[in-house]
């Protein structure tokens, strides 16, 4: 592994950041200026979002997030550039899904898909179709949804679940799943489409799964879990056994979709409360509870702030301003949290 990623902010540095913040603030509301800044830093002219923390690769997740932000900022030109690049470079599979990763040298080297990337892209297309009254986007979205339903939506233990990619996530008779791939507000939008009932079922099962997959002292969901045929969820073998960069998106998507039950938000809020006044760790091992020496990034803190508001735990999380080199993932998460809060009518 080469240079350390910018996602790794030492605890000390983050704590210093907390001290200078005079009062609780959002990182920034998401507006036109925020989008222009984002596009300048991460959107290349040809239409791909660069994951600055990961050697400048691009992936379907990043394209999806980029399209969502462009749509929210009403920047149709950027949206089209992003979608065009995605079609030309990632949608090279026969089944209508996007290859998950593109590298500056070599292009697509692994043709597997990442289901959350496909979901984000389809959701952005549906939102774009609404905003700009463009049926072509809706048609494209419908094709992706059809491909997803055929390839990665499966039944296990009476639940409808989402494989993280088409290939390689069946281990014996168990499935390896990623709870943060349930983009709840997207699933609701899909369910409203003609023939979208399966997406409603997927969302329902997602809630059940999140109730089953609570581990350790904080009862947090793991980044990767294993679901056996009897419906037992365990922290997946073969992955780092932790709550971390993936699963932090779980409360974001739940909140965005209008869920309010403290039961679902408390684990994250309790983690934030436990580390109030110091730095919230970026990862927590499960079920052991060992925390990393790496602090949650600005984007993750933005998610925690939203989560604590909903869980009504009484603690407010302070979100420091972006650092000068805030990476792609942190910045994206912060903007997503802001979009979610704005759509819910929270004070930014």
């Amino acid at each position: 592994m080469t240079a350390p990623s910018r996602r790794e902010v030492l605890i000390g540095a983050a704590a210093a950041g907390l001290l200078v913040a005079a009062k609780p603030v959002w990182a920034k509301p998401f507006d036109g200026a925020a989008w222009r800044d984002y596009a300048q830093r991460f959107l290349l002219p040809e239409g791909r979002i660069v994951d600055s923390g990961n050697k400048g690769v691009s992936h379907s997740e990043g394209q999806g997030y980029g399209m969502l932000l462009a749509e929210a900022a009403d920047d149709r030109a950027a949206f089209d550039r992003l979608w065009g690049w995605t079609q030309r470079n990632l949608m090279v599979r026969e089944d209508g899904l996007a290859a998950w990763r593109w590298q500056p040298e070599g292009g697509v080297t692994d043709r597997n898909n990442a289901s959350d990337g496909d979901i984000l892209i389809a959701w952005a297309l549906l939102r774009g179709a609404e905003r700009w009254k463009a049926e072509a986007y809706r048609t494209a979205a419908a094709a992706i949804l059809k491909a997803l339903a055929a390839a990665v939506v499966v039944e296990q233990a009476g639940m409808t679940v989402l494989l993280p990619g088409r290939d390689g996530f069946r281990k014996g008779d168990s499935l390896v799943l990623n709870p943060s791939y349930w983009v709840f507000p997207a699933l609701r939008a899909f369910a409203a489409q003609p023939g979208g009932a399966v997406w409603g079922k997927l969302a329902d099962s997602g809630l059940v799964l999140l109730s089953k997959a609570r581990f350790g002292g904080f009862q947090l969901p793991p980044d990767w879990l294993s679901l056996d045929p009897q419906g037992n969820a365990t922290v997946a073998e073969g992955f780092r056994k932790q709550y971390g960069y993936d699963a932090v998106r779980v409360p974001l998507y739940l909140a965005w979709d209008g869920y309010r039950d403290p039961y679902y938000f408390r684990p994250f809020a309790m983690l934030a409360a436990r580390y109030a006044g110091t730095a919230i760790p970026a990862t927590v091992s499960l079920p052991g509870g060992t925390t990393t020496q790496v602090a949650a990034s600005v984007g993750m803190l933005a998610v925690y702030r939203l989560t604590c508001l909903i869980a009504s735990t009484g603690n407010a999380v302070t979100v420091p301003p972006f650092g000068p080199n805030e990476d792609y993932y942190s910045t994206t998460l912060a903007h997503m949290a802001a979009l979610a809060a704005q759509s819910l009518g929270f004070e930014p």
Binding site: M1, S5, E8, G53, N54, E61, Y245, D327
Partner: peptide, 11 residues
Amino acid sequence: MSGVPRLLRLS
């Protein structure tokens, strides 16, 4: 690095 495994592991 943290983000790398998140995506790399997939493939």
